[in-house]
Each structure stands twice: as C-alpha cells, then as structure tokens.
Nucleic acid binder design. Structure first.
Lengths: 206, 206
DNA sequence: AATTGCACCATACAAATGTATGGTATTTAT
DNA sequence: ATAAATACCATACATTTGTATGGTGCAATT
C-alpha cells in the first residue's frame, strides 16, 4: 500500500493503471461498474482524493476518458512493429508485419517503436535473437550508436561508424565483416537509433 | 498503402494507430480536428468505410472512444513492459551485491513491475548494474527461473533452485556462493518471477 | 461531545459522445 | 451517359461524459 493512500484508493489506482497498460482509458462509469458502485460520483470522489494526495494529476477531458499523469513515469505499452536482423540482413517477407510497418514508421514520429532481433552478430553487445530493441526514429544518429537501417529492402541493426566518405555498419561479433556504405548508395536509409534493449527471459531449468 | 484503402482512409487509420501506441484513444471529434474537418460525421463515415473493407472492427462504446480490433496486418499495442505504480519512493538497499530497487512490495499492481538492478552477480546471465528487470508477482516460480526475493530486508535477484528440503538462490557469477534457504527461514519471501530484462543503451563511441 | 475523514448514494446539468439521415460536389467506373 | 464510389458538410438525437452539490452512516480523533 502506498503511503497515504487508503486500500480502496489504491485499488482504484491499480485498476486504472492496469487498464492503461492495455491501452484502455476507463471512464468513471466503467470503474464504478467494476467495483460494484451504483454511482459514478463515488469513483469521482476517490479520484479527487488520490489527486489531492499527489499521486496523479488529471488532464481535463482528453479523449473523453481520464488522463492520468503519474509522477513516476515508467513505461507505456508500445507496439512491436517488426523484426530486424542482427547478423546477416533479414529479408523482409512481403506478407509479414515488417513490410507493412516499416514504412509506417514515417507516420509514427515522436515516439519510439519496437523491433524484434534475429541473428547473433551483436552478441558481444549482449543483444541476441528474440531480444526487442527500442528504436527512436527522431534522434540524430551519432557515431558509435546502434542504429536500425534499411539496406536494399533489408532491415538490419548495427553499430554506426562514420568515417570520412563512407558510413560503416559494424557488428559486435568478429565473425561478421563491417558493411560499408558509400554516401552514394541508393538504397540505404537510416531508420532510427536504438535506445534500449528488452529481453524476455527464457525458462532455464537447472 | 494497404490494398483497398484510399489514401485518406489510410491516413486516418494510421493516425488512430499512432495515438493508440501512446495509450490514447481518439474520439471522432479529435480526429476531425486533426485533419481539419469541420464535422465529426466525415470521420465517422471514413471509419465505416474502413470497417466495411475489413481493416478494423469497432466495439461499440468502450471507454467512450473508438475500440479498434485489427485484422493481423497491424499490431495491437500490448503491455510489453508493464507498469509500476506511481509516486512511491523506492526503498533502496545500498550495500549488498545484486540488490534491486524495490518499490513497496505490499502494493503490487496486477501485472508486472520494474526493478533496477545493482551488482554483478548475474553477469553470466547478461544482467548488469543499471539493467531493469520486469517482475511478475503473480507467476508461480519454477525451478531455474530468475526470481526476486526478500531476505532479511534485502531484495535480491537470483536464480531459483529447488532442492529436497531447501531452496537455493544461485548467482550466475562463479565468484558468488549460492544462498541456501531453509524452509523454516523466517524472513524469506518470494516477490515474483523475472520475466524480462530492459537495458538502456549507453552511448559508446568508437 | 463535537469534529473530521472516509465510503457511498442520489440527483442535476452542460458538454461531448457515437450514430443516423440527408445533402452537394467531384471523381471513377461501366 | 449513367451509376457508383468518394469526400465532405449540416443537422438532429439519445447516451454518456465529467463535474457539482447535498445527503447518510460510520469510525477515528480531538
């Protein structure tokens, strides 16, 4: 239980957080129904109490629901848009999510998106097959950063090394040679900068 | 552009998807305003067209907004990382290896929460200081999984090894000895199972 | 004994919601 | 040339929205 919140207030806050993690914004009536209240105003007053205690703030009337701005912003759910190759470039399959959604990136500025990694060329950076990289398409890619790039219709994640006249895409695995991009390369496009890695833990019995 | 959708229909669909990736559910009026329409019904009819073409389905009146159920071509934003409650100060246990920053445990939201890792005892599992582990408190901990436990007011991340009469908490670093918990241990409590790892990428110039 | 906080209900109201219906102009297809 | 689809506007309507206000019962302080 959080300091200062009563159990019921905490329950309501938890419920709102839970729904938000599913990309849903509950209304007062929905919260009331879930907790068995006959009236919305009960929830309303609880939310006012929670707000008064400083645990949330409310942006009035956004999207018709309740906009909660938490003091402590952790993560909000984001869509996984596709897969990228860490080793040999991954061919984008025409009917998979990749093809559809990689161009969609241009339409989704302002926040990051997620891509699933295949291949082991980044294993020395502790990025493995199945990992999910968080990519920000709006950041300026700096030397040494991991980036996602499209090369001849193939999406790859590599470390960016800028040199005089060329751009090199390095693996973190000595088995792979760097990819050298001449500035005149027609089908090269930087998609974004890798700002994080997420990995689901495999069950490992031992 | 998707097959069968006009450019405007595609733009509207993209806009809805973009907002959903930010945990926002737009109303007809908001969409209309964004596209410069003077009337909601224009958007309404476009959504009807998109629905008629099978790209979305609408669940009537959930959360006051528009509920879109996509057809596979797009990804529904899902709670990849989970959320933790807001505003509560973290209790920090500074001086032991592989500690975690632990929010007040008594309050656990229904889905997972995030913990920050300190120490290097899990380095062979590629979990390092600064990494954030995603913990699900509702899963049954199985043998071999990474778990978060509280031991004498210290929170630790370890690999769980169940034996006949005792529970052992193993590090993934040979420098550290396993911790052996007798079943009668008074101050031992399992908090949850580590289901994921998140790491922010440090800028690494080379 | 009086007060305060908590949990809940009921009612009222302006504003916003999704939906329906009818209309106009342009483009595309037959 | 006619029909159909597209793109947009306007108006109307029942519901739902968040908010405000007032009230009841209860527990804990003061």
């Amino acid at each position: 239980m959080q300091k200062g919140l009563t159990k019921i207030q905490q329950d309501i806050l938890d419920y709102v957080i839970e729904l938000r993690s599913k990309s849903l914004i509950p209304t007062l009536a929905e919260i009331a129904k879930h907790f068995g209240y006959k009236n919305r105003s009960t929830v309303q007053q609880h939310l006012q109490s929670i707000e008064k205690k400083g645990f949330i703030k409310r942006n009035p009337k956004i999207s018709g629901g309740i906009e909660l701005t938490f003091d402590n912003n952790y993560f909000i759910p984001r869509p996984v848009l596709g897969e990228v190759a860490a080793g040999n470039p991954l061919t984008i399959y025409p009917d998979s999510i990749d093809t559809v959604d990689l161009p969609t990136i241009a339409h989704v500025p302002n926040d990051s998106f997620l891509l699933k990694v295949k291949g082991d060329s980044l294993k020395d950076a502790y990025i493995f097959t199945g990992d999910i990289v968080i990519v920000n398409p709006n950041l300026q890619a700096e030397n040494g950063q991991f980036v996602v790039a499209v090369l001849d219709n193939e999406a790859v994640v590599k470390r960016l090394v800028k040199k005089k006249d060329v751009i090199e895409l390095h693996s973190e695995n000595p088995e792979y040679e760097p990819i050298i991009i001449e500035s005149t390369h027609p089908n090269f496009q930087l998609v974004g900068v890798v700002i994080g890695v997420y990995r689901t833990m495999a069950k490992k019995v031992g």
